[in-house]
Design a protein around this nucleic acid. Structure first.
Lengths: 234, 234
DNA sequence: TTCGAACGGATCGTACATTATTTGTGGCAT
DNA sequence: ATGCCACAAATAATGTACGATCCGTTCGAA
């Protein structure tokens, strides 16, 4: 068996509905159970998910189309390799899209929306990064409240896809203290701008927010690399 | 046989290499041989391309991941339906991305690059829209000269994907006279800005250019609809 | 006319065959 | 003895064929 083969523990019986294999593999990639650059053998995956090879093959093709998986002819599939350039590329796109989505949100926001944002933010502050997993969920929901309302489904979906990729990476690293205070501060500022209908201000904060997130991830990737590559964070 | 089944003429023998079926279907979608919302039956496609069903199924899954095809469980695949909202969504994203890519290009452009741009533009002007197909190729090349140099492969690929979708649509409609003069003028302005290292000016022109392109396509879609839906433009 | 069961068709899943790549082994030359 | 090349076996992807399942339609009876 080669160095980076993947073994999933549970045979996970009975996921019959079509599309379920796709969901499962995708979730395993995003959640980090399948690590970046991990080799994906159809036979192994089929065994893991308790189906035959064809659904797995089709799922991998779809994931390839979405950019979660890369394939070489006659050489199989791998989880997409994630390096600094990869993160930077995605962040640069988000720096363009998210402010635009935010501007629109400001123009249609209601008091109820702001209340929801504040509730989400209150939860985030209460949790105070004690549970990284949960924090990720809450943070995603916070921004989702803003972006999901947009009429441009393509843009919103693109954001969502990028968000999931970034989540898959962030998950492997801790959040630095300085980043934590920045996140909380920027969220508060963002809510303030939204309330006072300051679209440009909100857009600017979001741009900062995304850039900071990207910078933080790339820095964490750097220290992880300097500390020696390892399969799992210590 | 239902209203919108698809029959491709040539059995097209011998496309053995893996991935070729994907290429073929994709090309047939982009070139318009497979029209928007056309039903895609794996058996038919397999027969058309001279293979069995599995390669077709995998190709369709990949195309689904890329957004060229939509699938419903147990109900098969269709070419993605293209309406005004669809075009508007894509254009809005491009209005954000293309100016950013252009700014970068201005910062690294060489005399040789400008010469290439002018050569491409000269060809476009010489052709003067007499051959729509050829014009599309030249116009794509013109912009590709600018975007393909960018370090952000994700952004460039995204542009390329959107470009192909838009090309698939535009192909079905004529280019109005006013749009023609606008295109030529904007290209010239763009070159001028690039030469004088005016990144912001270039970005602004590109934004105008993309917006105008989107507006034009949507208008053409409107007149086509008012003239009654038909399979092919008259 | 309406409800329901049978039919036809197409997708989805399983199993198998083929082909390509990789890995391991042995012999040969240096 | 060591390094290199050729060849063979194993491994895994790709292609083909078939059966099962699901959906829409049609035909028939109340």
């Amino acid at each position: 068996m080669s160095e980076n083969d993947v073994i999933l523990t549970a045979p996970e019986p009975a996921l019959d509905q079509p599309g379920k294999v796709y969901e499962a593999i995708r979730e395993d990639i995003i959640s980090g159970r399948l690590e970046p650059s991990a080799r994906l053998k159809v036979a192994d995956l089929a065994a893991s998910y308790g189906t035959s090879t064809n659904p797995v093959r089709e799922a991998l093709q779809q994931l390839r189309g979405e950019g979660f998986v890369v394939m070489e002819a006659n050489r199989g599939a791998r989880v997409v390799a994630i390096d600094e350039a990869f993160v930077r590329d995605i962040i640069e796109i988000e720096v363009l899209i998210e402010p635009a989505l935010t501007r629109w949100f400001v123009s249609i926001v209601t008091d109820a929306d702001i209340a929801e944002l504040e509730a989400a933010q209150a939860e985030i502050e209460a949790l105070n990064f004690s549970d990284p997993q949960r924090h990720g969920q809450l943070d995603t929901r916070f921004h989702q409240l803003i972006y999901d309302r947009h009429y441009n489904r393509h843009a919103a979906d693109l954001w969502w896809k990028h968000r999931e990729i970034l989540r898959a990476i962030s998950r492997r690293f801790p959040t630095s203290l300085s980043r934590r205070v920045a996140v909380l501060g920027e969220h508060r500022e963002l809510i303030a701008c939204i309330r006072r209908q300051d679209a440009e201000g909100a857009a600017a904060i979001v741009a900062r927010h995304v850039e900071g997130s990207g910078r933080h991830i790339i820095e964490q990737m750097g220290v992880a690399k300097r500390n020696g590559p390892r399969k799992r964070p210590a």
